[in-house]
Structure formats: C-alpha cells, structure tokens
Design a protein around this nucleic acid. Structure first.
Lengths: 160, 160
DNA sequence: ATGGCAATTGAAAACGCTTTTCAATTTCAG
DNA sequence: CTGAAATTGAAAAGCGTTTTCAATTGCCAT
C-alpha cells in the first residue's frame, strides 16, 4: 500500500473518531509510512524533525499510540529496551522477527509451521493460545562474511 | 536441587570472585531459591522483607544481578514491563513459557521441535541462531472453566 | 583477637524511556 | 467568523532500574 493510501486511511480513521487533522500528525504519519519499518521513537522523531522541526517528542509518542489504536502501526519490544514500530498492511498476516546481534538487522518471517506448533503446544498444556511472540537472535550472513553494509531492516516478510 | 545445595553453590561463587558473604545477600538468595520461579524484583523484595526488614531495594537488584552472573538465576522479560527471575538448575535445558492472560500463571515447556524449527528458519534466512525467545499468551484451562484457584506458576518444565 | 582497608549497604538521586500536565495554540462545526 | 473542544510543546512526573555516596561490615594479615 502506498504512503498516499495509508494517509487516506489515517485521515479517515481520524474522522471516524472525531479527532482533528493537524500538520504535526500528518507529518509524523507520512514520515512513518514512508520509512521502512522497525523505527524507534527516537529514530522517527529525528526523521520527522528534518521535515518539520517544530514537532515535539510528546506528539510523536501520541501519534504513534494513535496509529497503533487505528491498526496502522504495530508496536514491538525487542531486547534493546525501547519500543519499535512498524507500519501494518491491511491484509497483513502474523509474522515474527530474526535479529542480527552484530549489525542490528531485523528480518521478518512468517512460518505456518510455527503457527501450528504454537497451537499444538498450547493445546497440550491446556491453553487456548491467542498470540505469541517469537524472536530469533543470531548473526546474519553478511556479518559472518565480514561484509560491511549494515541495512537496518529488510522489508518483505519471508515465508519459511 | 535443594535450597541448601544452591546456597553452597552461591557461597562458592562468591569466594571464587573474591566477594564477601553478607547477611543480606544470604537472605535474598535463600528466599529466592526457596520461592517458586518467575518472581519480580518487587515480589522478591517483599518476601525478603518478611525475613529481614533491613534489606534495601538496591541490594535486591544487586544480588539478583550477581546471581545472574553466577548462572544461578535467569532474567526474563515478559509483556508486563518488569523483569522476572527464575532459579536455574545446573543441568537445565532451554525452555520457553506460556502465560495465562487472565490469571497470570506461567507454565514452562521445552520443545525439541521448536528448537529444530528455530534452527531451520534461521538457516533459511542466512543466520546462525544463538538464542531465541518464545512466549505464548492465552487462557488456561482453569480460567476457561471458571475455577477460582490462581497458582502463580507451575514448577516443572513440561516436555512437549 | 584486632586493625585496616576494600567490599557492601541503604537511602536518595540519577537514569532512560514513556506518559501526563498545563497553558497556549489550532482546528473546525455552526 | 466565533467559540468550544482538541491539540500542541515544554516541562514535570512516572516507572522500573542503576548509580552515587557516606556509613557500615566482612575478612585477611598481622
């Protein structure tokens, strides 16, 4: 989905809730939708500042919370102690993450088998499982081979 | 392993590091080993206070950190925003957790299949996976059936 | 035993991330 | 346009955790 389309959805969500459309909100949302995922608040704040230096930290937090409530952003808590946010596609399936402990790269993957296994383990223990959280930590191929590039994130969800 | 045996290991670890044995450390460690796992710092602090009201919060944090460094405690971060600690058996295998979102019960499980799957997913994506973190969230049988008991935790690791 | 010195302690301050408060500004329905 | 209600930025507060610091304690060498 394009940034444009996401913005339209955002404006619509605002209207539905009787909330107001403001320059700050729009700027924050636009930058968020345009960036590749898994940004920390700090990173998003810095990126938004470049576009509109008058936005405050609090507004970034507030807008992210709003995007989350509208189902347009997902909040993730990895092991680094700060929340990270990724834009949510409308038809998006559940996915998990694998994180390189050397370069910080975050790769998304979706595993049918993992979903089934979660279900099975839960049932075995007498639970009805609603959600899970799975993170793999390791070293990526680029880092092992000593290549230098450090892509913060890859975009597509790998089906494994 | 008994509380006694764990205390011996603790005292030994202190000696190895040239650290001192103190009443506070001993009290905290003894209460920790005696409790069933997954205590928050707050819970441990409260339990220790009952035994020795003169221990401070900072000392609980410090001792837990020490136990972690000695390999006698494991730190976990679930979705409730505070660290929880569990005693570690010497021969303990990796395990994961399933958490009831109604009563807070935490059940431990170890899944060979999950370990294999993690390995496989990692390899597929070009990673060498060192560790993972997996939590299942759902509703436990007792809660679904409306029974009232609310065990904070079950002790043994279920092999699934 | 005892002295002495480094390790340890509790209380309070600092920390890092996040939320809330509040007065000033902005949006937007009428 | 107007005015009520929402929104904003800056600063303060919150929350879990760590650090600081002066006072206390453990323990090795005597």
């Amino acid at each position: 989905m394009s940034v444009r389309a996401r913005m339209r959805r955002f404006e619509q969500a605002l209207r539905e809730r009787g909330l107001k459309s403001t320059a700050q909100r729009d700027d924050i949302a636009r930058v968020f939708f345009g960036a590749e995922g898994h940004l920390s608040v700090e990173e998003l704040y810095a990126a938004v500042k470049r576009v509109n230096p008058r936005v405050g930290y609090a507004t970034v937090y507030r807008t992210l919370k709003l995007l989350k409530e509208c189902g347009l952003a997902a909040e993730r808590h990895f092991d680094d102690g700060q929340a990270r946010y990724e834009p949510v596609e409308d038809d998006q399936q559940h996915h998990d993450h694998i994180i390189c402990e050397r370069c910080g790269k975050i790769v998304e993957f979706a595993s049918e088998e993992l979903e089934r296994l979660q279900e099975r383990i839960g049932r075995f223990l007498g639970f009805v499982v609603g959600r899970h959280r799975m993170e793999l930590y390791g070293i990526c191929a680029e880092c092992r081979e000593g290549r230098r590039r450090r892509p913060r994130s890859e975009h597509s969800i790998h089906r494994v």
